[in-house]
Nucleic acid binder design. Structure first.
Lengths: 209, 209, 209, 209
DNA sequence: TATGAATGAGCGTTCATTCAT
DNA sequence: GATGAATGAACGCTCATTCAT
C-alpha cells in the first residue's frame, strides 16, 4: 500500500527521486550536483522534484532524517537490552553502523560527507539529531561506568565522542579509498574499534587485584 | 625587510588577504562566502585578491598547505624524539593539535570543516597530505608495537585512524559548540583522549604477572 | 503544430532570441554586446538565453551555420544547372549574395563582420564552411575552363577567391556606408562585379579570329 | 639620434613595445590578448606600456596608422608615375601589398584582421584612411578610363573596390592557411590578380576593330 | 500528477587602467 | 623612465525555483 505515488502497481516517484538523489549526491556531491541531475537520474521531469520536495536541501534533509532515525532507533534498542556488557553493546553499535555502510555505501557516504561532517553548512540544522546519537552511545558508557566496568575518570560523553569519531574516521577511510573495503576488513574493524576504545592500545600489565 | 609587501612598515597584503580569508571562511563557510567578502574583510579591492591568488580555491589551498605542513612537521619531530614512550608522543600530538585549535580556532575550523572533513569536494586534492598525517601517527604506534608496549593485534594504521578520528571529533565538538571549549577542557581532553585510546575505557582487571 | 515553441499561436522563443541576437550583434558587435542586451531585445529573461544556447558564441554559431548553409545550397543549385554559361552562373551567385544583404542586411552584416571577416577569432571554427563556398564557386569556374570559355592560366580556386573577395568588399562598402545602398546600386553591382571579373576592366582590343 | 627612449645605445622602449604588440596581436588577436601579454613579450613592466600609450587601442592605432600611411604613400607614388599603363600601376600596387605581407606577415595580419576587416569595431575609427586607399586605386583606374584603355561602364570606385577586395581575400587566404604561402605563389598571384581584374576570366573573343 | 519552459539573482573571474614609489 | 601593486566595473554563466499548461 504505497502511501504516495498512487497504488495499483504505480511506482512511487517520490521514492524514485530519493533513491536517485542518493546516487547523485554520493557521486557528485550535494553542492556540485544540480537538481536536474537528480531528475535525470530518476528519469523524471525537472519540475516533479519540486512537486515532492520544497527544495534541493529538503531532499538531503529527508534522506538524512530517514536514515539517521533508523540508526538512532537501533542504538536505542541496543542500549535497552539487558544483561549485555557495555563492550558488547558498543560492538553492536559499531556493527550496525559499519553494516549500514556495507549495505548502502552511497547512502552512508551522503549522510557522513554531506551532513555529519559538514556541520558548518547543511549539517548545522541537524546538530541536535547528530548529538542525540552521541548521547545514546554515552548512555551505554554511562551504565558501564555505573556498574564499575568502565573507568570513572573518562566521562561518558567524552568516551562517546571518541568512539563515534573513531568509527566515522574508518568510514571516511573506506569512502575515500584510504583503507581497503572488504568484508573481512569490515568484520575485523568492528572488533578492533571496540578493542581499541574499550581495551586500549596498550598491553595490559599486571595489576594486583 | 619583508620580501613581500615591501619594507618600511608596509603591510603584506597577501598575508592580510589570507588572514581575512580565514575569518570569512570560518564564519560563513567556504562555499557560502563570496570573494568580495574576503576582499572586504581584508580591506582591499576586489581585484587584488586575484592579483595574489588564481582563484578562491587557491586561497583555501594555500591556507591548508601552510598549516597542515606545520602540523606534519610537528608530528614528525615528535615521532623522531628518542626515549619517549609512545603514550607520551601521542599526548604531544594531541596536545599540538588541540593547542592549534586553542590558539587559532578559526584556522583550524577551516582546515577541518572545509578540507579534512570535506574530502568529497575540496579535500579530495589533499587526500595525500591528509593521509600523510595518519601515517606519521601510525609510525609512533608502530614503534610501540615493536617494543611490545602496544598490542600486536591492532595495526598501527588502524590505531592511527582511531586516534586521529577521536581528536577530530573533539575538535568538531568544540567548533560546533557541542562541548564546552574552556582551557580546562582542552587540557583535560589532551590527557583523556590518550587515556582512552591507549588505556581503554575499561577498568583494568587483575592479571597475574 | 510547431515542434518548438508550442502550437496555438505561441511564439518560438528560440527563434525570437536568434532574431534579437541578429539585431544586437549587428548594432553593437558581437564582442561589445552583452548577453543581457540580447535577452532584453528579445523580451525574455536572461536565463532563457542559456536555456536554448550553451553560450553567447553558440548563438552566433547557430546564426552563421543556418545562413551559410542556405547560401551553400543556393550556390550548389546554381552550379548544378545545365546549359547555363559560367558568367550567368556567377551572376546568379552574386545576385543571391547581394539579395541576401538587401533582404536582411543585419544578418549579413553579422555573418560577414563577425564570422567570415573575423577568421582570427570566431571565424576560425568555420574556416571549413567558409572555404566550402569558395570551392563551390571554383567549380563553376572550373567547368568554364574545361569548356574553353574561361582562361586556362587562372586557376579556378584563384578566380573564386577574387570573385568572392570582390563581392565581400562590396558588401563591406554597403555595411559601413562607403558606397550608397540603393536598389539600383544593388542591381547594377550584380552586373558590374561579374563584368569586372569575367570581362575585365580593360577595353577589349581587336583580335583577328 | 633616437627621438624617444634616449640615445647613447639605449633601446627605444616604445618601439620595442610596438614590435611586441605586432607579434602578440597577430598570435592571439587584439581582443583575446591582454596588455600584460604585450608587456611580457616586450620584456618591460606592465605600467610602461601606459607610459607610452594611453590605451591598448592606441597601440593598434599607432601600428595601423604607421603602416597604412606607408602604403598610402606608396600607392600615391605609383599613381603619380607617368607613362605607365594602368595595368602596370595596378601590378605595382598588388606587388607592394603582397610584398608587405611577405616581409612582415604579422604586421599585415594585424592590419587586415584587426582593422580593415574589423570595421565594425576598431576599424570604424579608420574608415576614412581605409577609404583613402580605395580612392588612390580608383584614381589609377580613372585615368585609364580617361585614356580609353579601361571600360567606361565600370566606375573607377567600383573597380577599385573589386581590385582591393580581391587582394585582401588573397591575403586572408595566406593568413589563415587556405592557400599556400610560397614565394612562387606570391609572385604568381601578383600577376594573376591583375590579369583577372584587368583582363577578365573570359577568353578574349574576336572583335572587329 | 507531470512537464519543461521561464525567471533572475548571484558569483567567480578578467583585465584595462591608475598610481605610489 | 620604469615598476608592478592596486583598483573596480563589467560580464558570462549557473542553477535553484516558479509556473503555465
Amino acid at each position: 500500500m504505497a502511501s504516495r505515488g498512487g497504488g495499483r502497481g504505480g511506482v512511487d516517484k517520490r521514492r524514485v527521486i530519493l533513491d536517485a538523489a542518493v546516487k547523485v549526491f554520493a557521486r557528485q556531491g550535494f553542492h556540485a550536483c544540480r537538481v536536474s541531475d537528480v531528475a535525470d537520474e530518476a528519469g523524471v521531469a525537472y519540475g516533479l522534484v519540486y512537486h515532492y520536495f520544497d527544495s534541493k536541501e529538503e531532499i538531503l534533509d529527508t534522506l538524512f532524517t530517514e536514515r539517521w532515525g533508523i540508526m538512532l532507533d537501533a542504538i536505542a534498542e541496543i542500549d535497552a537490552s539487558v544483561d549485555v556488557p557495555a563492550r558488547d553493546k558498543l560492538y553492536m553499535v559499531a556493527s550496525f553502523i559499519i553494516d549500514s555502510y556495507r549495505h548502502d555505501p552511497d547512502m552512508m557516504k551522503v549522510i557522513i560527507v554531506e551532513v555529519t561532517r559538514a556541520a558548518n553548512s547543511f549539517g548545522r540544522a541537524h546538530l541536535e539529531q547528530i548529538y542525540a546519537a552521541y548521547r545514546r552511545i554515552a548512555e551505554i558508557v554511562e551504565s558501564a561506568r555505573a556498574d564499575g566496568s568502565f573507568k570513572e575518570d573518562i566521562s561518558a560523553d567524552f568516551a562517546a565522542m571518541c568512539f563515534y569519531g573513531a568509527i566515522e574516521q574508518l568510514l571516511s577511510g573506506w569512502i575515500f579509498g584510504m583503507i581497503p573495503a572488504t568484508d573481512e576488513e569490515f568484520e575485523r574493524s568492528k572488533e578492533l574499534v571496540v578493542e581499541t576504545i574499550c581495551g586500549g592500545l596498550e598491553q595490559p600489565v599486571a595489576v594486583s587485584g
